[in-house]
Computed example of a mutant assay.
Amino acid sequence: MDPFDLSNIPTVSIISSHSISKKTTRCLATLFPPQPPTAPSVLAVALVAKSIVASKAITIAEIVKRRINTQGEAWFQYTKLEGIMVELKAPKKSKKEGKGKNKDQKGNQVEKTGEKGTRTGQEEDMDEEDPFEVLKEKTPQKKRNMPLLTIYISRSPIPELAKLYGEQSGGGPVGETQEQTR
């Protein structure tokens, strides 16, 4: 028998803007294709979500399992939790530019003029850029270990996933609902 390949399982990514009903429909369409596959294959789907939207992925998984139950089929769930390194975005600079003393609406330095139109406080030949301008240093990007939840739902048992992540199962003929965790 060929070793099991996780890359053959269709993946459904979950983000905050996605609709629960559309993702549920997509999962069910994957698990119950209109035409049965010609080659023997595992009918499974993987829901992948970052920690921020893990609750949405869990909700979708529970709805999918409930729908599988209503069709009298058995379901098998394998839950994987891992960490991925993510670079945090640098904070955006404020768009409000100073309108303080001696600044115009765009935040540029404005020179004061005296009563007769003469400049005060600076000489005329000092209009060039400041030779002692502060250099902006690039700060290294901060990295964080972000939790990533993957929920595999299948209509048949997958022993390879059960060994790695444990198995929850249920459904089947009415009245035989069981749930087990290894």
Rank of each mutant, 00 (worst) to 15 (best):
Q71E: 15
K96W: 13
S94Y: 03
K106T: 04
P140S: 02
K101G: 05
K163I: 15
D125V: 01
V134K: 14
L149Q: 06
K50H: 08
E73R: 15
A57Y: 04
G117R: 10
T120I: 15
T38F: 09
F132P: 07
G117I: 10
R67A: 10
K89N: 10
E87S: 15
P159S: 12
A57C: 02
L164R: 12
E82N: 14
Y165A: 06
R119H: 10
T150L: 00
T139C: 05
V45M: 03
Y152K: 01
G100E: 08
S51A: 15
A44Q: 05
W75Q: 07
T38Y: 07
A49L: 02
S55G: 12
I52Y: 12
E82H: 05
K142V: 14
R67D: 15
K163N: 15
L135F: 10
G166A: 12
G170Q: 13
A54D: 13
K92G: 13
Q71I: 05
S156C: 08
T150E: 12
M85K: 12
K92V: 08
M146H: 05
K65L: 09
E137S: 07
E123K: 06
A54P: 01
E124I: 06
R119Q: 07
S169K: 14
I58S: 07
P173W: 04
M146Y: 05
N102G: 02
G100V: 02
E167A: 11
G117W: 06
D104S: 04
Y152A: 03
G100W: 01
T79E: 14
G83N: 09
S156G: 08
K136I: 07
E123S: 03
Q35E: 13
Q168W: 07
G114I: 05
S94F: 04
K93G: 15
I151M: 05
Y78R: 03
P157M: 03
N145G: 00
A46G: 01
T150Y: 00
R67T: 04
K112L: 13
E129Y: 08
P159T: 08
V86S: 02
K163F: 14
E87A: 14
M126Y: 10
E133G: 02
S51L: 07
E124F: 05
S55A: 13
K80H: 10
V134M: 08
L148T: 00
L88H: 02
P34I: 11
K101Q: 11
A162I: 04
A46E: 10
G166V: 13
L47W: 03
K56C: 03
K95L: 08
E128P: 00
T150R: 09
K143T: 14
V45N: 04
P36N: 11
G166W: 01
K56I: 11
A162P: 03
S41A: 12
